[in-house]
Amino acid sequence: MTISTLIASFTGFFGVGTKDNPLPWPLALRLIAFVLLIVACAVYVLRPMKDWLYGPDVEDILTSTQPNDDFLRWSQARGMHKAVLENEHTLQKRSIVYSFGVSLLALEAMYAVAVSLVSR
């Protein structure tokens, strides 16, 4: 998000959107749209998950009636493996959105340079 905002700010450094050389509103709206889309991707990827399974079930450990520690470790490993498989779909979606956001960031940088060259 920060890099996206910096890229948008650098267009002002290149003389785009100054008082003497205003940025045409369609170009400015596209630059704002890039920033908003990148922020939306970042928020989606970074937002916390509710009921996210990532470790052993403490309740299962505390209520275990098995005297064998090996059985308990095996049971917990199976539970964590199940949680990893259940979380895989969500992680894949977030990975795709992250990749899309990085691509948008590259496109925004190229767009900002193009706008600065065209508006001179």
Rank of each mutant, 00 (worst) to 15 (best):
M1T: 14
T2Y: 07
T2H: 11
T2I: 07
S4A: 10
S4W: 01
L6A: 08
I7T: 00
S9V: 07
S9Q: 12
S9A: 13
F10D: 06
T11K: 00
F13C: 10
F13R: 09
V16K: 02
V16E: 01
G17D: 08
G17M: 05
T18F: 02
K19G: 13
K19D: 14
D20H: 09
D20C: 06
N21R: 11
P22A: 10
P22I: 02
P22K: 04
P22G: 13
P24H: 04
P24G: 09
W25R: 08
P26Q: 03
L27Q: 08
L27E: 02
A28H: 10
A28C: 13
R30N: 10
L31D: 01
L31V: 01
I32K: 14
I32V: 07
A33D: 09
F34Y: 15
V35N: 13
V35P: 02
V35Q: 12
L36E: 10
L36T: 05
L36F: 13
L37R: 15
L37E: 10
V39Y: 09
V39R: 13
A40C: 12
A40R: 07
C41E: 00
A42P: 00
V43A: 10
V43R: 06
L46C: 06
R47Q: 09
R47M: 14
R47S: 12
D51M: 14
W52Q: 09
Y54K: 12
G55R: 15
P56F: 11
P56R: 14
P56L: 10
P56M: 09
D57L: 06
E59M: 08
D60C: 04
L62Y: 10
L62N: 07
S64I: 05
S64C: 06
S64D: 03
T65A: 08
Q66W: 08
Q66S: 12
P67M: 15
P67V: 15
P67I: 15
N68M: 08
D69C: 11
D70F: 09
D70C: 13
R73Y: 04
R73W: 02
W74H: 09
W74A: 15
S75C: 05
S75N: 13
M80K: 13
H81T: 01
K82E: 14
A83G: 03
A83C: 04
E88K: 11
E88G: 12
H89S: 11
H89M: 09
K93C: 10
K93R: 13
R94V: 07
I96Y: 05
I96A: 05
V97A: 01
V102M: 07
V102Q: 12
S103H: 12
S103Q: 09
S103F: 05
S103Y: 07
L104V: 00
L104R: 11
L105G: 03
L105Y: 01
L105I: 05
L107G: 06
Y111A: 02
Y111R: 00
Y111V: 01
A114P: 00
V115Q: 02
V115W: 00
V115P: 04
S116D: 03
S116P: 04
L117P: 00
L117I: 10
V118F: 15
V118W: 15
S119G: 06
R120E: 04
R120T: 03
R120F: 15
R120S: 08
